[in-house]
């Protein structure tokens, strides 16, 4: 069970959006896609989902070209949380989540899948709420619940699929960022694969098995977080001057400090002339 992108390119009229990018997503794995704005991260996810066909190269799921799969089968094997999921109707949160479960599905089972998905994203108390009345972060998690519900039937049948998440923590507070990252981790532990676009390098560093760095539509680096997150790469891809890197003593994973570390003090330390400016 793999989701494979083989030297895929996508060209718009003016410019290449993605140029010969390859990536294989295995079961049980989280791959984070990072890169500056406009690097082609969302485009990569849209290609991986089969929503857009590449100009050249192939996207295949378990060896079958993704375009050859019937839409229903594809939907049972992969689900995607877009960046701009909009709902143009007054659905309740539970109704929105149930939309993700394709018929035929017995009503009681739909109900069970939906409430389980809502519990996972921490919205079980919001089931009856109007989706339009939610905050941005709540709405993003409601759509995440819909995406989880889409994969739930095949998950229960022992065929966990692929989660494609485009900036799933962009609207989340600190605690909910952790919640969403834990959901991705759980999904991978249960044998699914997760490909997620992240802007927070430290979440990528601490939770991803591999990181793919895109820049100008090309692969800039790919590998384990410690291999990829280097000062040189950060300078090249993000144009951050002199970022500092620390390594976690237990996990050996890198931690990026994009500021001048020497200018900060711990909150418990007393003020001293050396570390504050007036």
């Amino acid at each position: 069970m793999t989701l494979r992108l083989d030297t895929v390119s996508l060209h718009s009229r003016e410019r290449p959006l993605l140029d010969a990018v390859s990536l294989t997503l295995h079961p049980g794995e989280i791959v984070a896609v990072i890169g500056p704005n406009g690097a082609g991260k969302s485009t990569l996810l849209r290609l991986a989902s089969g929503l857009v066909a590449p100009t050249s190269g192939t996207v295949s799921l378990d060896g079958t070209p993704i375009g050859d799969l019937p839409p229903e089968r594809l939907a049972a094997r992969r689900a995607m949380l877009g960046q701009d999921s909009v709902l143009r109707a007054r659905f309740s949160v539970a109704e929105l989540v149930r939309l993700g479960i394709r018929p035929p599905c017995p009503p009681a089972r739909r109900e069970a899948i939906a409430s389980e998905a809502l519990r996972r994203v921490g919205l079980e108390a919001f089931a009856g709420r109007d989706v339009m009345s939610l905050s941005g972060g709540e709405r993003q998690r409601a759509h995440l619940a819909r995406v989880l519900a889409q994969l739930a039937p095949s998950m229960h049948a022992g065929r966990p699929g692929f989660l494609l998440l485009d900036e799933p923590i962009s609207a989340q507070d600190l605690a909910r960022q952790r919640l969403v990252m834990d959901i991705a981790r759980d999904h991978a532990r249960q044998g699914g694969g997760c490909l997620m676009v992240l802007h927070d390098l430290n979440w990528a560093a601490s939770r991803a098995d591999r990181i793919l760095v895109l820049n100008h539509g090309r692969t800039c680096a790919e590998g384990a977080p410690a291999e990829v997150l280097t000062p040189d790469m950060l300078k090249t891809a993000f144009d951050i001057a002199a970022p500092r890197l620390r390594i976690h003593v237990e996990t050996e994973r890198p931690f990026v400090i994009p500021h001048d570390f020497a200018r900060f003090r711990a909150t418990t330390e007393r003020k001293s002339a050396s570390c504050i400016s007036p």
């Binding site: 839409p71 229903e72 939907a75 939309l99 993700g100």
Partner: peptide
């Protein structure tokens, strides 16, 4: 949910 999400939902 929009055409893209409808297609993604199969």
């Amino acid at each position: 949910l929009g055409e893209a999400d409808a297609a993604l939902m199969g």
